[in-house]
Nucleic acid binder design. Structure first.
Lengths: 150, 150
DNA sequence: CCATTATAATTCGGAGTACGAACTAATTCA
DNA sequence: TGAATTAGTTCGTACTCCGAATTATAATGG
């Protein structure tokens, strides 16, 4: 929406409106996610962390890479979540240095609860899409995610 | 992708895959925006702030509402940006209490630069969409944004 | 085999973000 | 005019995040 009333920056003109929309939608979704997280006294990052741990049992460093955070940052994050009983550290695999992070029952329950709330909060934004549109949107998301940064 | 290998939370089953995708794409876009912001020593919020000030000259409180932040938080944010010469506070309108925030030349230049980088970074995610898909995506975004929180 | 180098994670200090509870100043209303 | 309201700020606190230094365990090569 904003692109239309601005002078152009690059030479990418035609993409601008689409990028604008993408950014706006992004902030909307972040707002929704943050609300849900806050409701459970979690930061957005912590909720994301729990979401990952629902399906995986990663080591600290791969978790940091996945989240795009420094290892040191993740340490603190995991500290606090562990102190709340949401997850556990345990010695990982054969390597005596590595640490695996796994979610507790309590953490999983919270993740489940939060996930449900997120789905219910976002579903309305998506509810009145027709089958074909859904399919297309899924495909687009797929393509967008496939080309993302390493 | 994750929804398929999990038990269902609510009763909203069919929406889950779509919501999952939406959330994944959201984090991807946030990562891109954060990288651009960091490159210019800005936080994501500050870049968003500059983005808003490109097109508007809001008062503190409406800005806070728009960003979903407390007034006190915004005060600090504006303090730091003002100290860097990116924006200015000036007495706003008839009300002797209110403060308008307006972007400086330097801030506008930075906003312009960052915007261009964002477009270039996100355009590839969107480049190979065909005209119809673009149209659909714009429409969907429109609908999603129309129904967002007050 | 052991010294060197690399890797996994943590700790620490510092800047920034964000909140909520005062607080000040200007405005509105009764 | 006096009592609420509203706009913004300040202050204290908790958390996020980073980068540099540290500890401990691997892996390598001479």
């Amino acid at each position: 929406m904003a692109a239309s009333r601005r002078r152009r920056s690059g030479g990418t003109g035609a993409d601008e409106a689409l990028v604008d929309s993408l950014v706006q939608v992004t902030f909307s979704v972040v707002a929704v996610l943050s609300r849900v997280a806050t409701r459970h006294e979690l930061s957005l990052t912590q909720m994301r962390l729990l979401g990952i741990l629902r399906d995986h049992t990663p080591k600290m460093s791969s978790l940091a890479r996945h989240l795009g955070l420094e290892r040191s940052t993740l340490s603190g994050l995991v500290d606090r979540a562990e102190a709340r009983g949401l997850l556990l550290r345990c010695p990982g695999g054969g390597d005596g240095r590595s640490v695996e992070v796994l979610i507790t029952r309590e953490g999983a329950a919270l993740a489940e609860l939060g996930y449900g709330e997120v789905v219910r909060a976002l579903a309305p934004l998506v509810r009145d899409l027709r089958g074909g549109e859904r399919q297309l949107l899924l495909g687009i998301a797929e393509r967008m995610l496939r080309g993302r940064e390493p």
